[in-house]
Design a protein around this nucleic acid. Structure first.
Lengths: 215, 215
DNA sequence: TGCAACTGACTGACCAGTCAGTTATTAATA
DNA sequence: TATTAATAACTGACTGGTCAGTCAGTTGCA
């Protein structure tokens, strides 16, 4: 007899996760504001009261979703990035490739999409994401670029600002698609083509002539 | 005797603009959701009823703000972009420079900031922005890049995807600053430095070696 | 029998939008 | 110029609907 076939469960350790799963599903469908806590409860197969047994408020639900999804990120590819000493272009390519693979999976994109939707309304989420994701990935990337410049593998660019040149195009692509519904013509898997085009430009520039433009 | 010293004004043509100014101010301060229509009314020096005399709903306020701000954009730099036949790097530089100059003005940034905050909650705003701004700027940019590639002034890049590489870094910079409060060290006017660094990479790439990276 | 797990009707607060009533302005008239 | 009529401009108390969060009561497990 498995857990789900019992109606009640003492020490129901699985409940919080079930509720978060349900919350993610309904938030993704209708957005946070338009979702009633009762909708979450119904989807999870419990009553409203039970939701409040495990979560202090409606906002705690969205925080729980983000916290749960964000926790493993830092542990994943960070160690590689931080200690890497060879050609920085390799880990940059890796990072974007992995990122894009994640975004392409329909089940995995639900959380980033939710964050994108609701981050402006919840400073607590922005703070969490800043601390747990950006606060770790950005310094690692900055360090990587700095070492690349120091060892002469990269041109003399500003590491801190160059981070924006690395992640920006992917962000723009996702934002255009998710917010405005603007996708390039061959919509299927366009993320792969985007990264290829982006890295080509990032590494080589778009100018046909060898470096000779400015004032 | 000027208009504002009278309490009532026949054919009060100035009222809608006054109300929109007030709405922008309070929305910028506390966000759309947390603002009551009465707050807008109070700021505008009128009563709630008067707001509804000129605007059909609370949502119409935010739409009005965006519509008013967005209208002049298309007319501004578009003609230049669309017909330009020389080196595409020139108008790209111009576009980003102008954009960044706008964003640097404290009074001008209120509307983009509001759009950034609320766009996810209002499909009508996303649609408006998509149609009036992106729908005009993006095709112009795409055409510019396509012609650059055709005339051999640019390398063989995908015009549609390259647009993301042009606007992405600026978007990332603004998003990091506005959403997460992450700014580069020398915070004053970092937008100028960002554009300089970005264009340097965009035009030349970050690789120290001449084009030779491999698959 | 004891109690952890769960329920769902209820409450209190909030606020967008309405509308019957009030006030200022102008035009017409004396 | 003063008075009045007509009406545009404006007011703010009120309504109706929503829903997050509570808690006294119920259910099933050990």
């Amino acid at each position: 007899m498995n857990d789900t076939s019992k109606k009640f469960r003492r020490r129901a350790e699985a409940r919080p996760d079930e509720v978060l799963d349900a919350a993610l599903a309904v938030f993704a469908e209708r957005g946070y504001a338009a979702t009633r806590v009762e909708d979450v409860a119904k989807r999870a197969g419990v009553s409203k009261g039970t939701v409040y047994l495990y979560f202090a408020s409606k906002e705690a639900l969205i925080e729980g979703i983000v916290r749960r999804a964000v926790a493993p990120i830092a542990a994943r590819a960070l160690p590689d990035l931080e200690t890497f000493e060879g050609d920085p272009r390799l880990p940059i390519t890796m990072l974007l490739t992995v990122l894009v693979q994640q975004l392409a999976q329909p089940d995995k994109i639900a959380v980033p999409r939710l964050i994108l939707r609701e981050v402006m309304s919840f400073p607590s989420i922005a703070e969490l994401y800043r601390k747990e994701v950006l606060g770790k990935v950005m310094p690692a990337l900055i360090g990587l670029i700095r070492r690349g410049v120091e060892t002469g593998k990269l041109r003399k660019v500003d590491p801190e600002l160059t981070v924006r040149s690395i992640i920006g195009p992917v962000l723009a692509h996702v934002a255009l698609a998710e917010i405005f519904g603007i996708k390039p013509d061959g919509d299927g898997l366009s993320l792969d083509r985007l990264v290829a085009n982006h890295l080509d430009i990032l590494f080589h520039g778009i100018s046909a002539m060898p470096p000779e433009v400015g004032p």
